[in-house]
Design a binder for these strands. Structure first.
Lengths: 219, 219
DNA sequence: GTCTATATCCTGATAGAC
DNA sequence: GTCTATCAGGATATAGAC
């Protein structure tokens, strides 16, 4: 699933990393078992310690890959957008699409954060520093530019980015709970997941860009 | 912190539950240690098994309390709102305030979900069923009413609720990462957390209600 | 109800033969 | 590089005295 950017990795290392990622994403740091990783990779448990010294070392490699992949995709899809509207659509489409296709990635990051997140913070700084232009700086700049050009209102750029990302990620993060709530409330019978995600992109753009207030109504 | 709604619980049970909640929230299901819970409560480890049969049993009790508390507060603060605008402000203020004051609660729920969430789903249904009017039904109804009365545009109510909750929760969920990104991007020097949360409420309301598009600009 | 001691199991990691 | 066997530590849970 992820193409490695490191230069010298054998095929077996790749297989192990894939297996380890599945296991860590499924069960988290404390819940993941070295035996289970070995089973997923179809190798002996001893081999894990031969290729990667310890569980911790393996975990950090996985964390690095997930961040590198996720931030890389988003950055790649927004960096060349021209108008603010283009940027907004690209950002929403990419984050909803990626987190929808593989919800375990943002869940994995959230889980790491909820357990203190020290490792995640260090890793994050490293990953962002490796980008020619850090993702966050680019996003903030796009919003600032939109304000300067008079296309959008003078909102706080950082606050808006938070609203944007939160709106896009939340479905993936809370899908299990949402499905339960949805069935209770009766608004998701015969659920078409892919269609829902497509609609989600449009609805987020619509609300963030135009708001929900009816023009001319009250006030 | 949480006042129990169960009828028959001794003082010591309460102390243990508080300690267990802290430990589970800090380290998750697999990471939490019975010994650590005993230490936090200032009792012997054996007492844990005397009062609560097993770790699993204790965990479920905690999960129930957290959900009951969180959903209860939100429901209580929106159920009597009159206009749609009142409802929107009340929902945003409550969720930002509660998740900001204690970010570990939403993190705890997210973590449970990321690890499969089966227990969470069952518990969620139970908690919602116990509310006179389920929180989710009330929120959907408020949006529908706003549309019917012509106050807001005809958006998909479920989609809007997702955008609303995601926007409000995201800061609390990703705060460790955001602070790191913030310092990198230089938009959060000398951070005043409480002031930030107050501003966050206003910004979310502003974007969701009015959108960010400048009136009369292009198109 | 509360303690000490212990059973039983599981985990990450390593030693050593091949 | 790859296997079998095993160590040493730590986890939940219980037995049994008081």
């Amino acid at each position: 699933m992820f193409h490695s950017s490191e230069s010298e990795e054998g095929l077996k290392e790749q297989i192990i990393l894939e297996a380890a990622m599945d296991e860590f994403i499924a069960h988290g740091w404390t819940g993941a078992r070295m035996q289970a990783i070995a089973d997923r990779a179809g190798i002996n448990k001893t081999l894990l310690h031969y290729y990667f010294r310890s569980k911790k070392n393996l975990y950090q490699r996985i964390l690095y890959r997930v961040m590198k992949y996720f931030f890389g995709i988003v950055l790649g899809n927004i960096v060349e957008s021209g108008s603010f509207e283009e940027f907004l659509r690209a950002a929403i489409d990419t984050i909803v699409e990626e987190s929808g296709r593989n919800p375990r990635l943002p869940m994995f990051l959230m889980q790491e954060l909820s357990l203190g997140g020290k490792t995640a913070r260090v890793m994050l700084r490293e990953v962002l520093n490796e980008q020619k232009q850090p993702l966050t700086a680019v996003m903030l700049e796009k919003v600032r530019k939109g304000i300067e050009e008079g296309v959008i209102r003078s909102v706080d750029p950082g606050q808006f980015i938070l609203t944007l990302i939160g709106s896009c990620l939340y479905f993936a993060l809370a899908e299990p709970i949402i499905m339960e709530i949805g069935s209770l409330a009766g608004f998701m019978e015969g659920f078409d997941r892919d269609g829902f995600l497509q609609k989600r992109k449009k609805e987020i753009f619509s609300v963030l860009y135009y708001g929900i207030r009816k023009r001319g109504a009250e006030e």
